[in-house]
């Protein structure tokens, strides 16, 4: 960064190579925020910021993984029984949905950098739609659980004829962890929706592709967390 700054020191902002080479240089002008002197520099900082934030998010879900590990150790039988009773097919379909959506958004970033704005926008909104499919399936699953009489906190009639120790704990953590994950899916959809809109209407210049990338990286986190939640709740 320093060498870069040194190189650019004598040029005024509009002469900056990134701005000059970008087709839509006019739109870039005032976007550079306070402490940065180049857009490249700013994008680098934004990217680092997002990754640091994701590290923080990882620790948040890490707490759940710690809880799950400890409780599984304490109540091996109960956890096995609960996993067996879970909606394996719907849960696995959701994994497929999220993986597909992640592919879409990764390709979207790539083609946007190449200048194919409409395709990028379409892919971003496909991602958002797949997010909605995920949430719908998740709600369906919750509905099935409630129908069976499985409620968080060990409430519901299912627990009247299933009393292995650890069942209540499993389902409570299941609802809390997947609920928190669903909140992250929702935030990711909003984030992608906002960026996707400005991709489609052309308000996001190519030089600002890092904004799309940030939303995509956040979406990948949502995906990765699910890839770890899925086997713990449905397969193991």
């Amino acid at each position: 960064m320093h060498t870069q700054r040194r190189r650019l020191k004598d040029t005024t902002m509009s002469e900056h190579p990134v701005h000059r080479s970008a087709a839509d240089a006019v739109a870039i002008g005032p976007a550079t925020s306070e402490p940065f002197d180049t857009l490249l520099h700013q994008a680098h900082a934004a990217r680092l910021g997002m990754w640091v934030f994701l590290a923080s998010e990882l620790l948040l879900f890490g707490g759940f993984f710690a809880l799950l590990t400890a409780y599984r150790f304490e109540h091996a039988d109960g956890f096995r029984e609960a996993v067996h009773a879970n909606t394996k097919v719907l849960g696995s379909m959701n994994t497929l949905v999220l993986l597909t959506s992640s592919t879409c958004v990764a390709v979207a970033v790539h083609v946007f950098r190449e200048g194919r704005r409409r395709l990028a926008g379409a892919l971003v909104f496909t991602t958002v739609a797949l997010g909605a499919v995920f949430l719908t399936l998740k709600m369906t699953e919750y509905g099935l659980h409630f129908h069976e009489g499985i409620f968080p906190g060990g409430h519901g009639e299912w627990f009247l004829h299933h009393d292995t120790p650890g069942l209540a704990t499993f389902w409570t953590i299941y609802f809390v962890a997947t609920g928190l994950h669903a909140m992250h899916v929702t935030v990711g959809m909003i984030f992608l929706g906002i960026v996707g809109r400005s991709v489609l209407n052309g308000r996001l210049p190519r030089a600002h592709a890092h904004r799309l990338e940030l939303a995509a990286v956040y979406w990948h986190l949502v995906d990765v967390v699910w890839i770890f939640l899925w086997p713990l709740f449905y397969l193991a």
Partner: peptide, 14 residues
């Protein structure tokens, strides 16, 4: 919901 409630299988030490 008793996540740490011993009577429902929870563990306060966690």
């Amino acid at each position: 919901w008793g996540i740490f409630d011993p009577s429902r299988g929870g563990d306060p030490v966690l």
